[in-house]
Design a protein around this nucleic acid. Structure first.
Lengths: 349, 349
DNA sequence: TTGAAAGCGCTAACAT
DNA sequence: ATGTTAGCGCTTTCAA
């Protein structure tokens, strides 16, 4: 004797509203959607009936008929990362303003989940904002063929037909390199991200270039691979310093990494910035709240998110062609790279 | 001359698959869903045709027919808060495992957005997990009437028919009070949350009770209202200390508040914990990463999220009755409340 | 084991 | 200005 849900009392349909108002179903439909002219009297009656019966349009039926799903898919690797969290917030806000819902998938950096999410979103969404790891062209093509626009954000996806909104990662990393040199670094370390990520390789490339431009010899640059996470940073800096204890300036590919690294170093009794300069990338809100506050390359997350959802909605509603936008980044200088020039004399406050 | 999207080349329908396989549309349907027996030969042919044509089932049409939407709605106040972010991650993972999608709405603590989100989710989702501010019974009732199960999580929503998953907030706050007393606090301050939130009033009540039990006089307890955010904490502690400079122990209703308060105090040149003991509530990951690390009341966010989505899916799929589950919380003692008993003598490392 | 056909609730021709 | 009706793509009776 399984308990079943309360009395079905099925949802009110448009037909019921029409009957109640004493008009035809199409007049009822038009009164509610306003797609063709209806006499004020009818509109009035239909609206009243709808309210009286508690009518709610069945969006699924509407979608089946019109093909408009009024939903955008958002695929991210990790909602808990404030960098992506903030972008989701922006996207959700803009989407809601335009009357769109957001279907969220968290891939946890798992390509399998990403692929199946993409597949599942077909026929459910009008378009997709993809913060991706590395989808294959084969995964994306079916969606594009079905006319579902996709905008890649943050990670470059090199598939024709996609919109793209990216940061100028190479430039940011180059700036970071110059800054570390200017701040007194002599032996450099980098926490690189996973091989496959475009941001990781761009930041590595920019950092290397920046150091080379500044005349730093290859022999004074060391790097290790690390995950884009707090734990990745902790564990990465351990490996880096174990192999190269003379490193005195480190550039991490993300703030999460940088923060993990900085706290690990502080715990081990070394001083930041006096023993080790630390610079991150992203400028998540927590970076300014640590002691010492973290110098980092700021990405315009809100601007990028706004651009991505804006471009997508444009593609969805007006059939606009995909574009690629690259956002400038900027160095935010804080104490983690402000070395006190000379060992300060004993001071009494 | 507006460019329009690439050739429609409409999606492959079941009928096309059936024709290609030389079977009827119903056989094709059954071959793909397995809802009635089909000869192996037919199954084989249908599967091949589907693969050859790149068939993807239209979920919208299926939903219209079956009433199964395979989607759960999740409504949160703020995705960027790691407390909710983590719960979203858990919910999304469990939902995906069960073949459900997640429709996310971020209300930014705006009751209007919450109401319209709720309205928009009818006919799109099978059930809703609600991390809410304060929806009225009138907002929720229509959904319940339509047989859409709702599980409230975190904030208590006192509407009959809802499932509920909550922390034992009163107990947690009481424990925090005892701990602050035991740690040497003598004049107490509390950063309370917004009036309307059930967690805020429960934590205030528990804190007051705890202090009373410990024999602290009312005159040694002061409180201010503050938003549940980093900025709320900063600004709250300023007001608190301006009015009551003798406060030497503070309990914040959330970690975000506590962290904002602690950094504000440190910036102002006061020491934590030696001048001021600080205790938070939640145990977000950043709390352990600050210096000093933050003592806090830990909520089992992952357990709660798992329970909430589990209960919802059960209600959706088996029509199970709603329940209320209360999760225990636990004090996590860290340095922000570990006062060095005597001023330490000068030490040289 | 299979096919034909009804119909989920809605919108958009096509009639008046 | 309004009514009638076809049909979106699918699942599921009902017949064979």
């Amino acid at each position: 004797m399984t308990r079943t849900r309360p009395e079905p009392a099925g949802p009110v349909t448009l037909k019921q509203v029409a009957d109640h108002a004493g008009v035809s179903i199409s007049t009822a439909s038009n009164a509610l959607t306003g797609s063709r002219s209806v006499s004020p009297a009818s509109v009035q009656r239909v609206l009243q009936s709808a309210a009286a019966l508690g009518y709610r349009r069945n969006e699924v039926a509407r979608t089946l008929r019109t093909g408009l799903r009024n939903t955008v898919g958002v695929i991210v690797p990790d909602v808990t990362n404030p960098f992506w969290g903030g972008m989701i917030r922006t996207i959700e806000r803009q989407a809601a303003l335009a009357g769109f819902h957001v279907a969220l998938t968290n891939t946890e950096f798992d390509a399998t989940r990403e692929t199946s999410a993409l597949a599942g979103l077909v026929s459910r969404v009008d378009g997709i904002v993809l913060f991706s790891t590395r989808p294959t062209a084969a995964t994306l093509q079916p969606l594009l063929d079905m006319g579902i626009p996709i905008v890649a954000c943050d990670e470059v996806i090199d598939v024709p037909g996609l919109g793209g909104v990216y940061s100028d990662n190479v430039d940011g990393a180059r700036t970071a390199a110059h800054h570390l040199v200017d701040s007194g670094g002599t032996v450099f370390g980098m926490l690189e991200g996973p091989e496959a990520l475009s941001t990781a390789s761009a930041r590595r490339q920019g950092f290397r270039e920046g150091l080379r431009d500044a005349g730093v010899p290859e022999s004074a640059v060391h790097s290790v691979k690390a995950e884009y996470s707090f734990e990745g940073g902790r564990e990465g800096i351990r490996r880096l310093l174990a192999a190269h204890p003379d490193v005195d300036a480190v550039f991490a590919s993300t703030d999460n990494q940088a923060i993990g690294a900085m706290l690990e170093v502080l715990n081990a009794g070394r001083a930041v910035p006096d023993d080790l300069l630390v610079c991150g990338f992203d400028d998540i809100s927590w970076s300014a709240r640590l002691s010492p506050p973290l110098t980092t390359v700021r990405q315009d997350a809100e601007g990028m998110a706004t651009a991505a959802i804006g471009m997508l909605l444009e593609m969805v509603t007006t059939g606009a062609a995909p574009r690629t936008e690259v956002f400038p980044v900027s160095l935010v200088t804080r104490e983690s790279t402000q070395r006190t020039l000379a060992p300060s004399p004993v001071t009494i406050t």
